[in-house]
């Protein structure tokens, strides 16, 4: 029999190694949740619409990245640009065809319409792409692991997490410092007043939906480097994104980031120090507890 030895840390360093692993995993997963949720936060903040199809947009982005990778050999490190662009258009189209016609009349209609959209997208992909799990292999980042303070930090997730911070930073800058961003903020604060100021709020809404989709498109592009793609892949990410956005507060990008990191940490710590099977219970319980203390989320206004 082959004689090999699995690497095993010594007992003394284990507690610290475990802690740093849990901490790093939590921060990384949290940053990734933030990237997925960023688009949702933007859409909710400006249009007061919860996009129920957000998880399915993620799934479509992952499929796009997978096909780009397996058919054309483009690595996720580069194809994220294409998936981001593709999702921008898909999301804007969803707005124009579906959401725009139900907005304003009711608060529930856009939510249920996007719910219908999510069922449509999921089963369309199931029908066209079969339910087989697709895993992209042979990518540049695959399998590489860094070791920090006794913890293993996988490169694909690390890059995704860091990039998420970059994207969120850019998004925040865009909203706060550019003219279009001001127009978006104005529309978010008071649609009629913005119209009176000459802002074409219809176009703003299309743009916002597009940007929201673009963020999740970028997320999907990166995540394909380490996750398997299948029609149901977006489901849990979708739920967590809703909780992130609501926890962070209506319309706040820094709030979404903070909430996402908090959720990632709670998931990670509860998962290891209590039991992995209740890690998501802890996440949802966290939301319920925080929201009772601060009914508009951490940074909501």
């Amino acid at each position: 029999m082959a004689e090999s030895v699995c690497s095993r840390p010594s007992n003394g360093g284990t507690i610290l190694a475990d802690f740093s692993q849990v901490l790093i995993d939590g921060l990384m997963n949290g940053a990734i949740y933030a990237l997925v949720a960023a688009g949702l936060s933007l859409i909710w903040g400006v249009m007061d619409v919860i996009n129920f199809a957000h998880g399915e947009f993620l799934m479509v982005a992952m499929y796009a990245c997978y096909w780009l990778g397996s058919l054309l050999g483009i690595d996720p490190l580069f194809s994220w640009v294409l998936t981001g662009a593709f999702l921008f258009f898909l999301s804007a189209a969803s707005y124009l065809l579906v959401v725009r016609r139900c907005i304003g009349r009711s608060a529930m209609a856009p939510l249920l319409a996007t719910f219908g959209l999510s069922i449509f997208l999921k089963n369309f992909c199931l029908n066209r792409f079969t339910p087989n799990f697709r895993l992209l292999s042979g990518t540049i980042m695959e399998g590489r692991v860094l070791h920090v303070m006794g913890a293993s930090v996988p490169l694909p997730q690390l890059v995704t997490a860091l990039f998420s911070l970059v994207v969120l930073g850019c998004l925040y800058y865009f909203i706060k410092r550019t003219r279009i961003g001001w127009a978006i903020q104005a529309t978010a604060m008071d649609r009629e007043a913005a119209e009176l100021m000459g802002i074409d709020t219809g176009r703003i809404f299309t743009l916002v939906f597009g940007f929201g989709g673009m963020c999740v498109g970028i997320a999907g592009g990166f995540m394909t480097s380490y996750l398997a793609v299948f029609p149901e892949v977006g489901a849990l990410f979708s739920l967590i994104a809703f909780v992130v956005v609501a926890l962070g507060g209506f319309g706040s990008i820094p709030g979404a980031l903070l909430a996402a990191l908090l959720i990632g940490l709670v998931e990670s710590f509860a998962g290891f120090y209590i039991a992995p099977v209740i890690k998501y219970v802890a996440v949802f319980a966290l939301y319920v507890v925080v929201i009772l203390i601060r009914p508009k989320g951490l940074f909501g206004w």
Binding site: V22, D25, A235, G271, F272, P276, V277, K279
Partner: peptide, 18 residues
């Protein structure tokens, strides 16, 4: 035990590892 369709398996594998 783990949740079907989980977003990550970090806690599960780490619990086993420890």
């Amino acid at each position: 035990p783990f949740t079907v369709g989980a977003t990550n398996m970090s806690s599960e594998v780490q619990t086993l590892k420890s």
